[in-house]
Amino acid sequence: MASDGVVVEIGKVTGSVGTTVEIPVYFRGVPSKGIANCDFVFRYDPNVLEIIGIDPGDIIVDPNPTKSFDTAIYPDRKIIVFLFAEDSGTGAYAITKDGVFAKIRATVKSSAPGYITFDEVGGFADNDLVEQKVSFIDGGVNVGNATPTKGATPTNTATPTK
């Protein structure tokens, strides 16, 4: 695992066909100046998982989280898009600690492993708008004895992609 920078880890949970599971997305290594904004994309298989919603985690402190935390689910493109932009203008609602960034709610549709993997990152910046190093650890849903650990090695991303 990367020793510096922010680590975004997609949790690994267990479920069975027809059940709804909650998959946490963790941030670790949050910089001392916090995270003022970030955007990134995960990939998944809508034939295996139906993403039914995404909720902000406990490290989102904006009293009205829909102003700073936004997501979009595109089953036709097989992606989930995340956007966080601190909304106070003063840094008061920045992410300042490690913990759960988001909770992905999904219904298991198939007995195949439900991988959720890193696809791309736009950027991560602290309260001074300084770009942060970030790496990703894939996860998803274990169905029966299947284990979604494909790509469990962190993917280092030093520069934003478009």
Rank of each mutant, 00 (worst) to 15 (best):
S3C: 03
G5D: 14
G5R: 11
V6P: 06
V7I: 15
V8A: 05
I10L: 07
I10Q: 04
V13F: 04
G15W: 14
G15C: 04
S16G: 08
V17G: 04
G18T: 10
G18D: 08
T20G: 06
V21A: 06
I23C: 11
Y26C: 11
R28I: 08
G29P: 12
G29N: 08
V30N: 15
S32Y: 10
K33Y: 01
I35E: 13
A36T: 03
D39R: 00
V41Q: 00
Y44M: 09
D45W: 08
P46I: 08
V48N: 08
V48A: 09
L49S: 02
E50M: 05
E50Q: 05
I51S: 07
G53A: 07
G53I: 09
G53Q: 05
I54F: 02
P56A: 04
P56V: 11
G57I: 03
F69L: 01
D70E: 03
I73Y: 04
I73P: 00
D76R: 00
R77I: 02
R77H: 04
R77N: 00
R77F: 11
K78V: 03
I79M: 12
L83M: 02
D87S: 15
D87G: 14
G89H: 01
T90S: 06
G91M: 15
G91E: 11
G91C: 04
T96N: 04
V100H: 07
F101V: 09
A102L: 14
I104K: 01
I104A: 08
R105P: 11
R105F: 04
K109N: 11
A112I: 12
P113L: 11
P113K: 12
Y115S: 07
I116M: 03
F124I: 02
F124C: 02
D126T: 03
D126I: 00
N127Q: 02
D128A: 06
V130N: 06
Q132M: 03
Q132I: 04
V134K: 03
S135I: 06
S135L: 11
F136L: 03
D138I: 05
D138S: 11
G140I: 14
N145I: 14
T147G: 10
T149I: 07
G151Q: 13
A152I: 10
P154R: 11
N156R: 09
N156V: 10
T157A: 09
T159N: 14
P160A: 10
T161G: 08
T161N: 13
